[in-house]
Design a protein around this nucleic acid. Structure first.
Length: 295
DNA sequence: TACTCGTGGTG
DNA sequence: TCACCAAGAGT
């Protein structure tokens, strides 16, 4: 087992760059613990760091352990989620905390398979918690890492829309053999994608591996595959759901149907959105046409 | 697989 | 200005 087989030329420059440029984020501090890491990973799913920071601090102050969150109603989690978006994540984080309290003695599991079994924990989050919180060796494939590998290794501007087996193979092939180094590598590649190798306007002049980047060496060819799916929002059920839930988040008492009817003019879509929120467990219907966040 | 699911900042 | 983008998961 000589080093040449376990070490890739990109490892040292990326990790050295991370040593000098890593942001001081609260979930990276030792006192965050595994629960802090898990909370941050839920909040960061499709949501920028800048918007997560204030909510994360309030959340950990109020619910410093999974058991503390599990002891409160799920609706309180939805309320505290605020405007982070995708509020089902709040519900799933509450459900994950409940499972941790009941099945794992209140401790965030260290085992990857047990993490994956928790509500709201998928391929990425399970690997991220195991790697960042527990220093384990896992391929952590988020949108940043996928973009870094697409460029530096594969030589294309953007990764596919959905994670492919080929991407997983690249990630595993690139993963350092040593456990602690692998965990460092995971955080470093993610940070490189977030700060330098960004989707639009990458700062290649500041990139520690610009000289070895397959995409640069190929002349930075533009993306040529199928168009990346845009996310239309205006006029969708998601917008209506957002407005409905905003009313309920800001209300301390149950809200009458009329208050919800006021947020959207079209009755069929409005009813469909409300039904969807109830079906998702984000809204609880009471008697006499009153609604509230789940108690 | 492709689609749904929020919200707000930005080039 | 507005389409794109942001530490994905579930179905």
């Amino acid at each position: 087992m000589n080093d040449d087989r376990d070490h890739h030329p990109l490892h040292t420059p990326v990790i050295d760059w991370f040593d000098d440029n890593a942001r001081d984020l609260p979930w990276r501090r030792p006192e965050a613990g595994a629960w802090g890491v898990m909370v941050s990973e839920f909040m960061l799913q499709q949501t920028p760091v800048s918007r997560v920071l204030p909510v994360y601090g309030q959340w950990l102050e109020r619910w410093p352990t999974p058991g503390a969150l599990a002891a409160d109603p799920s609706g309180e989690a939805v309320r505290a989620w605020g405007r982070l978006g995708y509020p089902r994540r709040a519900l799933r984080l509450h459900a994950a905390a409940t499972a941790i309290a009941q099945l794992h003695n209140g401790e965030v599991p260290t085992d990857h398979a047990e993490l994956l079994a928790l509500p709201g924990v998928g391929e990425y989050t399970a690997a991220a918690v195991a790697s960042f919180a527990y220093g384990q060796r896992h391929a952590v494939l988020d949108t940043n890492v996928r973009r870094v590998f697409a460029r530096a290794v594969t030589g294309v501007e953007y990764p596919p829309n959905a994670t492919t087996a080929a991407e997983r193979r690249v990630a595993h092939r690139m993963l350092p053999a040593d456990e602690a180094t692998a965990a460092r590598w995971a955080a470093a590649t993610m940070e490189l994608g977030a700060l330098i190798c960004t989707a639009r306007g990458p700062e290649c002049v500041r990139c520690p591996i610009a000289g070895q980047c397959a995409w640069r060496l190929a002349g930075s060819p533009e993306h040529d595959g199928p168009p990346r799916r845009g996310q239309t929002y205006a006029g969708t059920d998601r917008q209506v759901r957002g407005r409905l839930l905003a009313v309920l988040r800001e209300a301390t008492e149950p809200v009458p149907q009329a208050a919800l009817d006021a947020v959207w003019h079209e009755p069929v879509q409005r009813a469909r959105a409300l039904d969807g929120l109830v079906a998702d467990g984000l809204v609880e219907p009471l008697q006499d046409g009153m609604y509230r966040l789940p108690g």
